[in-house]
Design a protein around this nucleic acid. Sequence first.
DNA 1: AAGATGTTCAACCGCGTATCG
DNA 2: ACGATACGCGGTTGAACATCT
Length: 321
Amino acid sequence: MGRAPCCDKANVKKGPWSPEEDSKLKEYIEKYGTGGNWIALPQKAGLKRCGKSCRLRWLNYLRPNIKHGEFSDEEDRIICTLFASIGSRWSIIAAQLPGRTDNDIKNYWNTKLKKKLMGMLPPSQRKPPPFPSSHQGPPIQSQPLSYKECSLSYYSPTTTKSFSGLESMSVPLNFSNTTTSLATNNPSSLFQTQESWLSSMQYYPVKENLLMFGSEGSTCSSSDGSCTQISYGREVKQEEMGFQSYISNGLEENQKFMLNYGSNSIGGQNVTNGYFGEIPLDYGIEDVKQLISSSSPNCSHSLLNNIDENKTQEKVTYFYY
DNA sequence: AAGATGTTCAACCGCGTATCG
DNA sequence: ACGATACGCGGTTGAACATCT
């Protein structure tokens, strides 16, 4: 049995918004706010629209300070770098780009940026060998690496279940310059990009179980105007922890390094999309990482190098473990 | 000029999660 | 604790427009 519809589909208008509808919605929200209830809003505002439709229209088009038009090179860099790091977490990426919406960024990525990146590669590399995805073929690591062997891996302190579909995360990140082996099609590039990405970040222990990425001071924006950027302490909303990483034992002997891109689970067990789940794009995250690491220095290299110089230096990211 | 093909982007859909009673 | 409801997110669709043949 399916979920109950959020509104009476028969009595709501669909399709493009008319200028009249736009002004009705805008006027109402500017006057009364959303009231925290999008479902009831259209009726109050005199609109024959679904609440979700109103919300989307407001967030993606009508709300103040929305930026339309071309993306700057700087924005390109941020998008590429974040995509390489966290995958298609568009709302998080949007939070780093004031005035841009997740929908905008998603569209921009899918229609332009992906192709732009591909164009930077030499022809022989434009279609990299398919990275073993989570749903095709055997896992990269059928046997979990020991923590000594694999300093970057998914780690769940609470479960011994296998990480089906997540094995692609078991990429060694060699902080201590020990040699490692990895069964990927292109381990060196992976390794290189993982390392270059992480080394491009500033990270340092703040407290015993807390690492801080970036630098101090933080402002943020997101598609709904709330602050969803990274995280701000243990009391942050769940959604703000979407970018959380649990890092343990990554920087010292006997330490384990773990990133968790899952929004709600230690060890990433509930990750269903984004980095380690389905990767529907023609060029997945690993491809992008490779692109970023291997394309021309004056462009792609700066993607990684400039991110913290220009943007994330203004951000602060706490990672609990 | 006209049809075919490609591109863009606003909007929709369904799912996971948070919140509330 | 549990079910109902609402929100937010990411993937997908399709109409409008642009470019090609």
